[in-house]
Amino acid sequence: MRKIILLLLVICANTLMAQTTQDKAAILKVLENQRQGWNKGDMENYMQGYWKSDSLLFVGKNGPTYGWQKTLDNYKKGYPDKSAMGFLTFGIKKVEFLAKDKAFVLGSWNLKREKDEPKGYFTLLLRKIGGEWKVVVDHSS
C-alpha cells in the first residue's frame, strides 16, 4: 500500500513540475514579447501582456492606476515616442507559482536612452486566463 501511495505522489509531483516548467516558459515568453514590443516602439503590442480589464492594477511612482486603457494612456503620456521609450531590458530574478493559475514575478528593468538610463524593479502578479498568462498586477519602481 505504501508503495502505491509513494508512486502516486511521484507521478503527481512530476506532472506538477512539468506543468510548472511549461507555465514558467509561457510567462517568460509574455515578458519577452512585451520587451520586444516596447523596443519596436509599439506600445499596443507591449500592452498585450496585460489583462485587458478595468480590474488591471498598475502601481508606479504616481500611485495606483486601475484599468487596461488607463494604463495604456499613462504609458503613452510618459513615453510619447520611440526615443522616450529607449531600449528596454529585463532581469528576471524570480518566478514563483502561488497556485496552478497564479504566479509571482520579481525582476529589474533598465531603459537605455540617448540622454539617460533609468532603471528599477518590478513585481508582477500573473493569472492564467483563458489558457493565457496575463499580468493582472504590476508594481514598478
Rank of each mutant, 00 (worst) to 15 (best):
E114L: 06
Q34D: 09
E117I: 01
K102Y: 13
S140P: 12
S141A: 15
L9Y: 05
K119A: 03
I92Q: 06
Q36T: 15
F97M: 02
K94E: 15
D138E: 11
V105L: 14
E132V: 12
F87N: 11
A99K: 15
A26Y: 01
S140A: 15
F97L: 02
V105E: 06
L8N: 07
W109M: 06
M43S: 03
N14T: 01
V59Y: 03
D81Y: 14
F104W: 09
L6P: 03
S83L: 04
P80G: 12
N14L: 10
Y75M: 08
A99Y: 09
Q22W: 02
R2S: 15
T71F: 12
T89P: 05
G49Y: 02
W133F: 09
T89G: 03
K119L: 06
L125P: 03
K24D: 00
Q48P: 01
N62F: 09
G120V: 07
K40N: 11
I11A: 13
I5E: 13
W38G: 00
M1S: 09
N74H: 14
I11H: 06
N110V: 05
S141I: 14
L16S: 09
N33G: 10
G130S: 13
P118E: 05
E117P: 04
F58S: 04
N110C: 08
V105H: 02
L111V: 09
L57Y: 03
L6A: 12
K40D: 10
K102A: 10
W109K: 07
Y79C: 13
T21W: 00
L72P: 03
S53R: 04
L56Q: 02
K94C: 13
D81P: 10
D116W: 12
Q19E: 07
D116G: 08
D116V: 07
V95Y: 04
D101A: 06
N62I: 08
K102W: 14
K112Q: 04
I129E: 06
E32D: 15
G86F: 07
K77I: 07
T123F: 04
E32N: 13
E132K: 15
P64E: 12
I5T: 10
I11T: 12
A26F: 06
Q36F: 13
I27K: 00
L28P: 03
V59I: 15
V10S: 01
N74F: 14
E96R: 12
K77S: 07
G107P: 07
V105D: 04
L106I: 07
G60P: 08
I92W: 07
N110H: 15
K76S: 08
R2F: 13
L7T: 14
D23N: 09
S55E: 14
G41H: 15
L16Q: 06
Q19M: 05
T20C: 01
R113Y: 10
N62Q: 12
M17D: 11
V59Q: 04
Y121A: 07
G49A: 05
R2L: 12
F58M: 05
Y50F: 11
A13Y: 05
